[in-house]
Structures are given as structure tokens and as C-alpha cells.
Write a protein that binds this DNA or RNA. Structure first.
Length: 886
RNA sequence: GGGCGGGUAGCUCAGUUGGGAGAGCAUCGGCCUUACAAGCCGAGGGUCACAGGUUCAAGCCCUGUUCCGCCCACCA
């Protein structure tokens, strides 16, 4: 037994860690800062630093790793930039929950101490997600790992903030924003998730001042009435044409508020009366500004009623709703309550009901930035794949609103703005200013708010490469080649990277954006902890190995469709990994040394055939990956490896390998086997890096890591590795003959151990020659005793038959032919042919078809018709003879 | 309210300019054939959601209907 003998089954556990360490220690993931080779970069979508790997990451990372490894094999200088995100609110919430277990609030701790705790938590947990990415095989350039809060990136954030402020694209203002009373912070519009809920529509009567009667308004949030500063009606509403009163008395508060006329009001809704609460509703806010209405905040930052709410002060907002309704009922001012479905905003981090609230915040003026981002996709500088997402992207950018970037939390980039306590001057600067530039005062107080997490991630493609310095890295790798992500952060992240990249780098951040699917559970449900349907990728890996898992993800990554993950399927692909393993194992039983490359002329048919098929597989793989069709790439490989290389080639060459009497043939076949195995491993490597590396090292003549290999398609043209359609056609004939015999054996229930005899008739000399030349091969795989080939002549009676283009096979079964079975078998086949012929003749008898269809298509149909007719005749004739036996 | 995706074999899904309906798993039959029983050989199984239309030809293009899923939206 040779020393490169493999174990009987593939065990990933013995292999994966070993090779990952090897790749890292050999520096095989490292990008060169400059090179003559094409440079290709991908920046990782930075996972939350305190996060845990989930299926979404697994898919995302796997696809990126496939692209990166593929590009390296194509000879590119690849940079896969890794890193993590500080994930402001999410991380802060996690740490706050931990504190809660100790019965401490962050306020008790104080800002500085709290931030220390967060950093501490990052130290403890920050490595976890990275190690999990490594288990997936991620070939990131880890020496360059970045964090959105590290010094370099913080500098980039401050620089961007200051410049945008100078350009008037960042401003501070009092506007209505989305407020999460639980997280106690403002949120951007994107961070609010709307959920359709069953609620109520309360109809409330607001009595007119100076005359009898009332205007009835309808609201879903009666507690906000305490902050009403007007009632609005449509200027053209005829119901109020004669209304003389100019104000109403706000119930419960006994405040007189004006009746205003505004076209925003929908006359068809309810009674056409709209209560206006400028401080707690975005629309009302707009109306309020148009009419110079006071803005009265009745709900505070904790979601409790303010002193402005009068006797309701201190009540929780939901408690207050009930109380207000009761009070109105008592006063007889509640006209009715209807059931009403409406969208309610929730915090995307903590799921609390978001309160629209008037607040002073910082904003990015988004329109000017959005225009460039739109143009770049319109003119194709950045491609979005699949392009159905282009519309979504355009839609959002076209309707973009100013981006609220200030957050009232502690974990994040503190806004680089200071207020002079002496003169009130606002100073925005990259570095902490020593004194006030206006009055020279030394007491400058920094803005306590921090920036939206997505502000710093928007800079990721260039901040990670050293911007604002002009680094060699930026020069080589910006714009990056591709961004790979799921659609759920298309707006949060992708669109904003486009905006910032175009603004600050004056070029797009990436040439391609590949949007992949969401991973769902077997029932198509989104995986979530609360549903308990989460499949842990690490568990899957433990069970089946990383390679099987990765191959599964790739195989399911069809464009435009979500993935329903199930472990059962991973198991299926584990079989594939094992199949490959065993194919290698078999090969190494014979392939013990390097073989010289043979002349093409001296090769046997199967050798020529498999080389040609390898070429085709490589081309298909390349085309699929270049178009991000990962599933096609995976199935191409699967089919080639299993059904061509294993099922046919390895079986076909066995007699050659075991035949000691023809060492020349054996050597040339071994040489081909070596080439095909080697190149196949290279093709597979991006998908299943571990097992291919493991096998690579057993391969005679293979040097170094498989990561240093190159795609043969890119090398100097090698006549051995060209398509050879003549050989493919000849091999097809041989395979058809074998399948014909196997089919007979299978359907007639003949034991595999029973050696059969076959008679092949063909009028074509080339066919007879092929059969003669590969007689042993056919006999072997067809499990035949004897094989004779001749021109059509006397036919055996007690025989089963298989008819194919150019040849007819007879398997004499004297004494054992089951007439009934063979009759049934032939009948079935004839029926199929019958229906097929009816269809074809219908076509061919159609003048329009003959005239209008392309000649090529018509010819094809005619050929097929002739072929089937011939087959039908032969089968029919045979059927007669068989019947005569019975 | 607007937009998007999907409905193809029992299950999960492919199907790239319209021209012979496919794969994996599952099922059935036969095999321990010296790489692999995580395997080998063979078989059965589909009104391509429904209804129209365009075309010589439709799973694919157009219109409508229906069911499922998702995204966006300031109608109280």
C-alpha cells in the first residue's frame, strides 16, 4: 500500500483546522499592496462585533469566499477586507441587558464607565464571530482586519462629518423624528419597521366655540389629542362651507384651538375633520409649520406624559390612551370606536412601538448625494445583480428623505461638534478644539449624541483602505470588484456606500453589487430565535463538514429566490464530498508517481472524452461564476465529478489500469487521470476548499497549496485540454450501447452476475469500427460474455433488443427470455414513440411551420422523425418475432 | 396605496435571447461488481396555478384571475 493511500471515508474534522492554519501561516490570504496582476477586492459586510454566526452570514461569507478563491485561481491579486461593526444600538442594548442582570442601569454607571464596559464586552466576544467566519473557510486578509470604531476609521468618520457640514450637507434642526422610548434615541426612517396591527379608530367630538355643534375627528392615538393645537378641514369641504366658528374647545384640556383649512385633509375620511398634533405626528408637523401652529410635546423621551398633558402627566402613553378614552366617554364626547387596522412603527432593535417626537437632531441632506448614486447605477458604472433590485434601489433613492444621523446613545462615534459655553458658538472640527474660534473661550462642550452606526459603515469600502490618506491600497483596490449582500441592507448600507463613495472618492465603491437570497427555514419562515426555528451553521458544520455545507449553500444560491435550508440536504452534499474523496482514493491506488504528459494522438477514446468534458465543465463553471450563477456552477461541478468522471471515466479505465500487459496504455491513461483529477480539484476548490487541499497534497507532482494553482483555461493553450466533439460523439455511441444492455438487464430482472451475449448490427462502418475498437470496454461495463458486431443480417429470435441511432443491440436470451416481459417492455417503448411521432408529423405537415420556422429547427425535426420511424420499425419487427415465440 | 418575487415530479427546487420538460431527495426493482452501501445498475412519476391572447411554435412573451411570500408608503 502506498503512502498516499487515503482513509476509506472523508472525515472533515481531521482536515479543516489543519489546512486553515496552513493557509494563514503561509500568508495565502494576503493581498499585495501593489502588483502587475489585476487587483480584485471585496469588502466584507462587517458583522456585529458581538454577534453570533447565523445562516445569513454563512451564505454571505461562502459566496464571497467562492468569488475570492476563484479570482485567485484566475491569477488576480485579491484583497478580501475583513472587519466588524460596532453596531451602536444593538451592542449597547446587549450590554445594557447584561448590566440589568447585575441590577445596574447605564445611567448609574455613567457614560465613561459604560463605554468601558462595552469595550470590555467587545474584547470578550469580538473574536467569536471572526473565528466562526474562519470555520467557514473565509479567506480574508486577516492582518488587515478593521473595526468601525478603531482609530483610523474614527478619523475617517470625523473627516466626513466635518466636510459634509462645511458643504451644508449636514445640519442640525428641530424636526419630528422617530423616537424609541425604550432605547431612548432617535431612529432614522429605515430603522422603523411597520407592522400592521389591529387597533381602533376613536371618533371624538371637539365642540365649536361661539356656536353649538362640534367637529368630529377620528384618531388611532387619542392620547395625542392632549397636544392638539388645531383642527383641520379641507378648504373645499362643503359640509363646513357655512361654518362660522373659527375655533374649537379641545376636550379635557379646555384649550381653545383654531380651525384651519388645509388641502392635506382627506374629505372622504370620516367626517373630514383632522386633529392636528404637530409634536407627535409627521403629517401634523408639516401642517403645523405651514400654519405656524404651536408644537406642544405631551409625550416625553420615556414614553410618559409631560406636564403639558395636564392632569395626565406622568402616565405611560398606553395607560394614558385608556384614561383619555374613559374621560371622553364620561363627558359624552366619544362618538364611537371602530375596529381599525393600521401600520404601527416599531424599533428595529428592540421592537418597542416608536413614537413620532419633536426633537433637535442632526441630519444629512440626502438628495444631492442620492442623485450621484442614482446616476452611477443608471449609467452602469455599478451593476446590480440580479437587476430586479435596480428598481427597488431607484425607488428608494428617488424618494429619499433627509437622514437623521444623531443617536442619543453612548456607544458609537461621538459627534465632532462642540458648543462654546461662553458665547454659544457651535464648532465642528476633526480634532477637539482648544478654544472657541469666535470668542476664544476655553470651555467647549462636546455634543453628547453619537452617529448612526450606518454612518460609519457607509465609509467602509474606503475607510478600511486607509482613507483619508492616499494609500497604495486605495490606489490598487478601489473601486472594489463586488459587494455581496442580502437585500435587507440595500438601503441601510449599499445605497449609502454608493452616496459616500461617490462623494468622497469620486468613484463608485464597487463595480458589481450581488444581492443574494435570505436563508429561511424548511417552511420558508424567516429564522428567528423567538420562533425557535434557527439552524445553527456551526452545528451543521460539526455534523457534515464545512465543505458539504458550503457546497449546499452554493447549490441553493439561485438568483432571485430565497433559500429554504434543511440539514437533510447538507447531508446529500456530504455524499458528494465523500464521492470525490473516494474517487481520489481510487486514483491514488494507481497514480503513484508523476506521469509525463502524453501525446494527444496516443490517447484512448475515454481519455480524449474525459478531457473534453473537463474542458466543457471548466467553461461552464467560468461562465456561471462570472455571472454570479452559483447554483449553476455547483451543479456543473456536481454533474461532471459524479456522473462523468466517477460513473463513466473511472469505471471505463479500470481494465486499462489493471492490465499489466499493456504498460504504455496504462501509463498514458494514468497521465490523463492525473491531469483530470488535478484540474478538477482546482475547479472545485473555491467551493470546497478543505477537501480539495487535502487531496491536493497527496497528488503526485502537485506542489504547494492548491490556492497557488491556476485555472487551466487561463494558461497557455494546451491541445490536450481542448474540446473534442468527435471523441465526445464516439463515446456517446459507446455509452448508449452499454446503457442499452444495462437497460435490458434491469428491466428483464437479469442478475448482474449473469454474463450476457450481445449482437450489434449497424449499417455504418464507422460505428462497427468503434464497437470493435472498444469491444472490451463495452463487454466490461455491459457485463457481456461475448460481443459480435456486423452489418444488419440474421436476427436472433429469442432476444431482447435496444435500438439507437446507428445501431441495434440484440441480447439473445435463448431459454430465459420472458416473452411477456419483453413484449410489455417493447409495447411501452413503442407507445412512447407513437405519441412522439404524432406530434412530430403534425408539425411537419404544417405548411406554416415548414415555411416560417428556421431551417435548422425544421431539419432537426425531420431528422428526429426519421430516426424515430426507423426505431419504431425495428422495434415493431422485433416485437413480432418475440410474440411468435409465445 | 404602490412595487417585487414565486406557484414546474410526492418533497425541495433548476430551466440564460420562445424550438426535444430536468436535478437532488423520496419511491419501486436488482446488486456486497477488487474507490465509495455516504455506493452501483435500472425504473416509475408532471394539464409547468387558472383563463384568454400573440406566434408556425409558449414553462418562457402579453392581458386578466387566483393563492403564497416579501419590500416600500405620513391617510388620521
Amino acid at each position: 500500500m502506498s503512502n498516499n493511500m487515503l482513509d476509506k471515508g472523508y472525515d472533515p474534522r481531521n482536515v479543516e483546522n489543519k489546512w486553515y492554519s496552513y493557509w494563514e501561516s503561509e500568508g495565502l490570504f494576503a493581498a499585495r499592496e501593489t502588483s502587475d496582476d489585476a487587483c480584485y477586492a471585496i469588502v466584507i459586510p462587517p458583522p456585529n462585533v458581538t454577534g453570533v454566526l447565523h445562516m445569513g452570514h454563512a451564505l454571505n461569507i461562502t459566496l464571497q469566499d467562492i468569488l475570492c478563491r476563484y479570482r485567485r485561481l484566475r491569477g488576480d491579486n485579491v484583497l478580501w477586507m475583513p472587519g466588524t461593526d460596532h453596531a451602536g444600538i444593538a451592542t449597547q442594548n446587549v450590554v445594557e441587558r447584561k448590566l440589568a442582570e447585575e441590577n445596574v442601569t447605564r445611567h448609574q454607571l455613567g457614560r465613561e464607565k459604560f463605554i468601558e464596559r462595552v469595550w470590555q464586552w467587545r474584547e470578550e466576544s469580538g473574536g467569536a464571530i471572526i473565528n466562526q467566519l474562519k470555520r467557514l473557510g473565509a479567506s480574508c486578509d486577516w492582518d488587515r482586519e478593521r473595526f468601525t470604531m478603531d482609530e483610523g476609521l474614527s478619523r475617517a468618520v470625523r473627516k466626513v462629518f466635518v466636510q459634509l457640514h462645511q458643504e451644508g450637507l449636514i445640519f442640525q434642526g428641530n424636526y419630528i423624528i422617530n423616537w424609541c422610548p425604550r432605547c431612548r434615541t432617535a431612529l432614522s426612517d429605515l430603522e422603523v419597521e411597520h407592522e400592521e396591527l389591529d387597533g381602533h379608530l376613536y371618533h371624538i367630538r371637539y365642540p365649536l366655540v361661539g356656536e353649538t355643534g362640534a367637529i368630529t375627528v377620528a384618531t388611532t392615538r387619542p392620547e395625542t389629542m392632549l397636544g392638539d393645537t388645531a383642527v383641520a378641514i379641507h378648504p373645499e369641504d362643503e359640509r363646513y362651507a357655512d361654518l362660522k366658528a373659527t375655533s374649537v374647545l379641545l376636550p379635557l384640556m379646555n384649550r381653545e384651538i383654531p380651525i384651519i383649512r388645509d388641502e392635506y385633509v382627506d374629505m372622504s375620511f370620516g367626517t373630514g375633520g383632522l386633529k392636528v398634533t404637530p409634536a407627535h405626528d409627521p403629517n401634523d408637523f408639516e401642517i403645523g409649520r405651514r400654519h405656524n401652529l404651536p408644537e406642544i410635546k405631551v409625550i416625553d423621551d420615556d414614553g410618559r406624559m409631560t406636564p403639558e398633558a395636564g392632569s395626565f402627566q406622568g402616565l405611560d402613553r398606553f395607560e394614558c390612551r385608556k384614561t383619555v378614552v374613559e374621560a371622553l366617554k364620561k363627558k359624552g364626547l366619544l362618538e364611537k370606536i371602530e375596529d381599525h387596522k393600521h401600520g404601527v412603527g416599531h424599533c428595529y432593535r428592540c421592537k418597542s412601538v416608536v413614537e413620532p417626537n419633536l426633537s433637535k437632531q442632526w441630519f444629512v441632506k440626502a438628495k444631492p448625494l442620492a442623485e450621484k448614486a442614482l446616476a452611477a447605477v443608471e449609467n452602469g458604472k455599478t451593476r446590480i445583480i440580479p437587476d430586479t433590485w435596480k428598481n427597488t434601489y431607484f425607488e428608494w433613492l428617488n424618494n429619499i428623505r433627509d437622514w437623521c444621523i444623531s443617536r442619543q446613545i453612548w456607544w458609537g462615534h461621538q459627534i465632532p461638534a462642540w458648543t462654546c459655553s461662553d458665547c454659544g458658538e457651535l464648532v465642528v472640527a476633526i480634532e477637539t478644539p482648544e478654544k472657541c474660534p469666535k470668542c476664544g473661550g476655553g470651555d467647549l462642550v462636546q455634543e453628547t449624541d453619537v452617529l448612526d452606526t450606518w454612518f460609519s459603515s457607509a465609509l467602509w469600502p474606503f475607510s478600511t483602505m486607509g482613507w483619508p490618506d492616499e494609500t497604495p491600497l486605495l490606489k490598487s483596490f478601489y473601486p472594489t470588484g463586488a459587494l455581496v449582500t442580502a437585500f435587507d441592507i440595500l438601503f441601510f448600507w449599499v445605497a449609502r456606500m454608493m452616496m459616500m463613495g461617490l462623494h468622497f472618492m469620486e468613484d463608485v465603491p464597487f463595480r458589481d453589487v450581488y444581492i443574494h437570497a435570505l436563508v429561511r427555514d424548511e417552511n420558508g419562515q424567516k429564522m428567528s430565535k423567538s420562533k425557535g426555528n434557527v439552524i445553527d451553521p456551526l452545528h451543521t458544520i460539526d455534523q457534515f463538514g464545512t465543505d458539504a455545507f458550503r457546497f449546499t449553500l452554493a447549490a441553493f444560491a439561485a438568483q432571485g429566490r430565497d433559500i429554504k435550508m434543511s440539514e437533510q440536504r447538507v447531508e446529500g452534499y456530504r455524499h458528494f464530498i465523500n464521492k470525490l474523496w473516494n474517487a481520489a482514493r481510487f486514483s491514488f491506488m494507481h497514480l503513484t508517481e508523476t506521469m509525463p504528459a502524453p501525446d494527444k494522438e496516443s490517447l484512448s477514446l475515454p481519455d480524449r472524452w474525459i478531457l473534453s468534458r473537463l474542458r466543457l465543465a471548466a467553461e461552464n463553471l467560468r461562465d456561471a461564476l462570472d455571472q454570479y450563477r452559483f447554483n449553476d456552477a455547483a451543479s456543473t461541478l456536481y454533474r461532471f465529478v459524479w456522473h462523468e468522471f466517477c460513473d463513466w471515466y473511472l469505471e471505463v479505465i479500470k481494465p486499462t489500469l489493471y492490465n499489466e500487459e499493456d504498460p504504455d496504455s496504462r501509463r498514458s491513461t494514468l497521465a490523463v487521470l492525473g491531469i483530470v483529477l488535478k484540474e478538477t480539484l482546482v475547479l472545485l476548490h473555491p467551493f470546497i476548499p478543505f477537501v480539495t487541499e487535502e487531496i491536493w497534497h497527496k497528488l503526485p507532482g502537485a506542489e504547494g497549496s492548491i490556492m497557488q494553482a491556476r485555472f487551466f483555461l487561463d494558461g497557455a493553450p494546451d491541445p490536450l485540454l481542448e474540446r473534442d466533439e468527435t471523441s465526445e460523439a464516439e463515446m456517446d455511441l459507446i455509452m448508449n450501447l452499454i446503457t442499452g444492455v444495462r437497460n435490458i438487464r434491469g428491466e428483464m430482472n437479469l442478475a448482474p452476475s449473469l454474463a450476457l451475449q450481445a449482437i450489434i448490427h449497424s449499417p455504418e462502418e464507422s460505428v462497427r469500427k468503434s464497437v470493435q475498437a472498444y469491444e472490451d470496454l463495452i463487454k466490461n461495463l455491459g457485463r457481456l460474455d461475448t460481443l459480435t458486431v456486423s452489418e444488419p443480417g440474421a436476427r436472433p429470435n429469442a432476444a431482447a433488443t435496444a435500438v439507437m441511432p446507428g445501431a441495434t443491440v440484440y441480447v439473445p436470451l435463448e431459454g430465459i427470455l420472458d416473452v411477456e416481459k419483453e413484449t410489455a417492455r417493447l409495447d411501452k417503448e413503442l407507445n412512447k414513440i407513437d405519441t412522439e411521432l404524432v406530434k412530430l408529423s403534425k408539425k411537419l405537415n404544417n405548411e406554416d411551420y415548414i415555411n416560417k420556422a428556421p431551417a435548422q429547427v425544421v431539419e432537426k425535426t425531420k431528422g428526429k422523425y426519421a430516426q424515430l420511424t426507423e426505431k419504431q420499425q425495428k422495434l415493431q419487427a422485433h416485437l413480432e418475432r418475440v410474440k411468435a415465440l409465445g
